[in-house]
Amino acid sequence: MILKYIMSVGFKMEKDGEQRIAGGLASDYSIDNLKGLYLEEKEIIIQSEGHEYRFKVKKSEIATSIIEQVNLGLSLYKSADFHKVKLGDKVHISIEHH
């Protein structure tokens, strides 16, 4: 499996049983090029301090900032590993999802 970097975790929240992360997308993505980012019901891989954690995406939201950077928010299915995710961790998808 080959991994493709999509973003770093810039925001992390766990509230009322919902686990969410968000961040600005890698520079090779733009509002006109979001190919492969339909992630609902797909798996993401988060690399953190030499470990890989896998999470299933419940819902994804794409928004642009005032400077037209593309941001991605992901709601994840509940996982016991969510507490191990840290700001700055790298989020990847498998290129098999394309």
Rank of each mutant, 00 (worst) to 15 (best):
48 S>P: 00
57 V>E: 00
75 S>M: 15
1 M>C: 01
21 I>K: 01
36 G>K: 06
49 E>R: 13
77 Y>E: 07
72 L>F: 05
33 N>L: 02
95 I>D: 15
76 L>T: 00
60 S>E: 06
70 V>I: 12
29 Y>H: 06
73 G>P: 04
64 T>N: 04
12 K>Q: 00
84 K>S: 05
8 S>Y: 03
7 M>V: 13
44 I>Q: 00
40 E>R: 01
20 R>M: 08
34 L>G: 02
61 E>C: 10
22 A>M: 11
53 Y>K: 04
14 E>S: 11
22 A>Q: 07
4 K>W: 00
41 E>R: 14
36 G>M: 14
68 E>A: 10
82 F>N: 12
88 G>A: 13
46 I>S: 04
10 G>Q: 10
16 D>T: 11
8 S>F: 12
76 L>Y: 12
73 G>N: 00
35 K>V: 11
13 M>V: 13
46 I>W: 04
72 L>A: 09
42 K>D: 04
26 A>G: 01
35 K>D: 11
77 Y>S: 02
92 H>L: 12
43 E>Q: 10
75 S>F: 07
38 Y>P: 01
83 H>Q: 10
37 L>E: 02
41 E>Y: 06
64 T>V: 05
55 F>H: 00
38 Y>V: 05
23 G>T: 09
32 D>W: 08
51 H>K: 15
31 I>H: 06
84 K>G: 07
69 Q>D: 13
92 H>G: 07
63 A>Y: 07
38 Y>M: 11
47 Q>F: 06
88 G>P: 02
79 S>Q: 09
97 H>E: 14
97 H>Q: 15
31 I>M: 08
25 L>H: 04
47 Q>P: 04
97 H>P: 00
78 K>F: 14
98 H>F: 12
27 S>D: 14
90 K>P: 01
88 G>K: 06
51 H>C: 12
97 H>R: 11
93 I>N: 01
15 K>E: 15
21 I>T: 09
14 E>W: 03
79 S>A: 10
34 L>I: 07
21 I>H: 11
13 M>R: 13
22 A>V: 04
45 I>L: 02
56 K>T: 11
5 Y>S: 12
87 L>D: 08
46 I>M: 03
40 E>A: 02
56 K>Y: 13
21 I>D: 04
30 S>D: 15
11 F>H: 15
9 V>E: 08
89 D>T: 04
52 E>Y: 15
24 G>D: 13
22 A>C: 08
98 H>E: 10
57 V>C: 06
26 A>H: 11
86 K>S: 09
76 L>H: 03
92 H>V: 03
13 M>D: 11
41 E>C: 03
60 S>M: 11
19 Q>H: 04
65 S>L: 07
13 M>I: 08
20 R>T: 03
47 Q>R: 09
33 N>E: 06
3 L>K: 05
2 I>A: 15
